[in-house]
Design a protein around this nucleic acid. Structure first.
Length: 264
DNA sequence: AACCCGCGCAACCGCATTTCT
DNA sequence: CAGAAATGCGGTTGCGCGGGT
């Protein structure tokens, strides 16, 4: 060990490189980790000849270089799992990631944001569109006071009606915000086993889940239009999972399907 | 043709927690 | 045991790209 020098005090002053990783850097990091194993990230910089902070190295390894990463499209099952676990635990991305082998917390987080923040987004979009139309309208007015604005007005109206914010205000998640979320909601309901579903369902472990319970957790509404949120979230997912191919876990998928239930 | 805009994604930042000395 | 360092997490940013105007 080398004294107690602080290699990492203020990445800024230290002048660590930032931004996207180059293939050369990746190679260096890869070689280093293959030789010395994961961890001790702070020493990576000097040892591997990388001008990167330990944090940066770790992040790059964990999210990109680490072997066994899937990359590419999230499968329908994976999506289902993400949705379910997010409903249970909220934004506990790394916890959720543990149940999706080969996926990183970052990936899942990004996926969630891009796929399940639609409501926010679309209303945003609509606001923008509205602004745009208003602008057009004003321009028209300035140009010639004679023209009719009927069309623009109509459009604006339509947009208003289509705006979910003007319909029901539906929350996507229902997680509590405390940090003990997992303890609280951790499927103790999956009886027998203190570790519950934690750490171990890449093996053959699974659990049948009480549908009523999950039904209650299913607050997600994909179709603001047809308002039957009710009991069918479960069925939706079951269908999804049954249809799907490429079961993501190591375990025996037949077992899984035969339970008529759930992955866990 | 030029510009704008939104999207997806990798990486960063600040804070919290864990490990080391 | 205290303080420092390292690691881990979640939210956020910013860049490059494609599509629309």
């Amino acid at each position: 060990m080398m004294g107690m020098m602080s290699w990492e005090v203020g990445a800024a002053e230290q002048g660590w490189r930032k931004g996207p990783w180059t293939p050369e850097e990746d190679k260096l990091l890869n070689e280093y980790v293959n030789l010395h194993g994961e961890g001790r990230w702070s020493s990576v910089a000097r040892s591997a000849g990388l001008n990167r902070s330990g944090k940066s190295c770790r992040l790059r390894w964990v999210n990109y270089l680490r072997p066994g990463l899937k990359r590419g499209q999230i499968t329908p099952q994976e999506e289902g799992i993400i949705i379910e676990l997010h409903a249970l635990w909220g934004n506990k991305w790394s916890t959720i990631a543990r149940y999706l082998p080969g996926r990183t917390d970052n990936e899942i987080k990004n996926y969630w944001r891009t796929h399940f923040k639609k409501r926010e987004k679309s209303s945003h979009k609509q606001e923008k569109r509205k602004a745009q139309l208003l602008k057009q309208k004003q321009q028209q007015e300035n140009m010639s006071r004679v023209s009719s604005h009927a069309d623009t007005d109509k459009l604006l109206k339509v947009i208003d009606q289509g705006n979910p914010e003007n319909q029901q205000n539906i929350t996507v998640t229902m997680h509590p915000s405390t940090s003990t979320v997992e303890d609280h909601y951790s499927p103790t309901m999956y009886h027998h086993d203190n570790n519950i579903i934690a750490s171990n369902w890449s093996s053959d472990q699974y659990c049948v889940v009480d549908e009523g319970l999950w039904g209650g957790l299913w607050n997600l509404d994909d179709h603001p239009q047809n308002d039957h949120v009710d009991t069918n979230g479960i069925n939706k997912i079951l269908t999804m999972q049954n249809q799907a191919t490429g079961f993501p876990f190591g375990g025996d998928s037949n077992n899984f399907y035969n339970t008529g239930g759930y992955i866990f």
